[in-house]
Design a protein around this nucleic acid. Structure first.
Lengths: 205, 205, 205, 205
DNA sequence: AATGAATGAGGGTTCATTCAT
DNA sequence: TATGAATGAACCCTCATTCAT
């Protein structure tokens, strides 16, 4: 799994046992995402996650206070990587609003391709992980809304749009479309996906 | 609960025991939606639903084969009413594409106002009912997609949009925005909501 | 079902509603044996028995105090018919001990052929009705034992046999062999069955 | 409980936790047989078995997939010990057919004395464990039948006997007589029991 | 730190029986 | 007498979490 676990850097600098500890933690997170993706939240009991990670049941609780803490670690890891990628993509896109939206959208699609299991777990059709998905979207939406306000002020999007409503709409369409697409990437080409998402963004009107 | 259970009218004309049976069923559905809304799917055990409906645990299973069947009854009831309302709204909107989208959107908002608990359960923030929501969206999306194709053929929406992708996007934004709004209707005025949703629909470009 | 319900004669002479009552009772017993035979005791809930008999659930309890009473009615009916047939068979067999055993055995086999479902239910491989079977055997064993004592006194069976033990043995072998045979009558011919059972009876030594 | 659990010896040599696990398993089996004997299969719920074994309900399912698996463990344990004892008894009995039958019968009686609870559970009057008993008998009957065929070929039993029928008969009489006797060993002396069972075996004609 | 057996509350579901109609 | 909806105790089984080793 390529979702970043930023906290691990500290551990990585520790002793050998500490490195092993970080490995175990990563394996647990990875196993959890796998189980979520393949069997749904239902199949992801702490015992099964531990087993899939190759550790004993009790070891799970040496790394996470409880299952909720594991969920949060997954979400935080996903958010940390996603935010980094989006920031870098936008930074490289220049000042044009449409170009920025396109760069952001393309990076989102790339992230989904790299993290298919995670996207399916968070936003997929059998999304049993609704609460987790909310945490991710809630973390992203304020930024979207703020950006919309700035663009409205700059005349790049219509002032008739309610930024809060539009931010919810953009977050929802992006997450669902990505989940729908990673489930079966033949449903649309990569370019159709990006083009359609960009055209539905208010900045493209 | 105002979600229609259309079939019950027939039962309502039956014998007294039959009426009582229909009443019990309706109370169970109503109690289930309440519990889903307030405690999430987690809190909605069959025993608690029965208790909230004022019947014994076993009575639940006289009316629904299992909990899944209750979920489906809720979804079917919601879909039946929603479809009827949307059809009537569009029928009264004339031939103009934008007018149809506006009529449809306004009716959606009205439905959400009338069925706040249900919307929160299906699409809300703590959406533990992901699978149910999927059933609703899956049922609606083909119609949206077909409509987009027709409008693309008529030149009313851009041919550069991928109808399948756009249909997913429209369904996702509508459901989430409504859930976000019914959670706290002061977040935007009714008109801001409708205006923003309409403007984000491809037909308004 | 051909198991006698001797008590019904009285009812049969009653009014029309009384005859109907007797019919319902017989239908319930018949349905119960059918369900036992096809689905085991597990599948024979009072509601299912009633449904199979074409009456409402509550009607079951107008005819039997509880399920145990139904079981007893089945056993009593079977015993009443079986005893009558065995008595008549022996009465027609003359005084010879071996001839009597043979007549009794032949009649047992005939009874099993006429009442396959019942035999399977009571003594069959998936005998979930162990308690019922015990009641039948318990009712028959004293007679077998007494008969063995008489034959031992007459020198027709070895005095070295313990009559109580032998009676248990005869009852057990007869019931099981019949159940095994009715399950699949091609396992042995009728004559092989009778011959073997007779030869294993102490009187044939 | 003296029914062998042969595989446990390996575990017994394992680590302390492993020994504890084997102990718990044995206690569950022991408690189950006790409950079956005293309250019938009906009274032997998984919760009560666990409680009688001094463990929590959930522990039951750490050791047996479900109740059926516990039943099978009981049957397998009983069969393993019984077969071993019968084999050794026959091996020590020489070549004479009657001596072998007597040795086998004596060993059966000794086994019943050592495993009274188990015999009562499997074959006793309130035999609710019919399916378990069938498994035991089904496992033993082919050997009995084959032995009868060999003895018929050797002229030691009558060729007029149908081996399949006779094997069913022998198994049924043995199991029931033993269950009847262990219920109240004063019903017959040990020797009367053995003598009568032997005399009813076809080889003693 | 790691193990994995143990815990026990709680979930979904069934069914013998009752009772208002 | 017949109906069938309702009852609720009881069952089987799961699983998040703990703790002795």
């Amino acid at each position: 799994m390529s979702v970043a676990e930023p906290d691990l850097r500290i551990s990585d600098q520790g002793t050998a046992p500490a490195r092993s500890r970080a490995d175990t933690r990563r394996r647990l997170i990875d196993a959890a995402i796998d189980l979520f993706a393949h069997q749904g939240l239902h199949g992801a009991t702490s015992a099964r996650i531990a087993r899939a990670a190759g550790v004993a049941t009790g070891t799970f609780y040496l790394h996470f206070r409880d299952k909720q803490a594991l969920f949060e670690a997954i979400v935080q890891g996903a958010l940390a990587e996603l935010r980094g990628r989006l920031r870098r993509a936008i930074d490289g896109a220049g000042a044009d609003a449409r170009a920025q939206v396109r760069a952001r959208t393309a990076e989102l699609v790339a992230f989904a391709e790299d993290n298919g299991r995670l996207i399916r777990v968070l936003f997929g059709r059998r999304q049993e992980a609704g609460a987790l998905a909310e945490d991710v979207l809630d973390a992203l939406i304020p930024g979207i809304e703020e950006s919309l306000r700035a663009r409205a002020a700059a005349g790049e999007v219509s002032a008739a749009l309610h930024p809060g409503v539009a931010a919810q709409a953009i977050a929802a369409m992006s997450s669902r479309v990505l989940a729908w697409w990673v489930e079966d990437p033949t449903r649309a080409t990569r370019d159709e996906l990006i083009e359609t998402l960009c055209r539905m963004h208010p900045v493209h009107r």
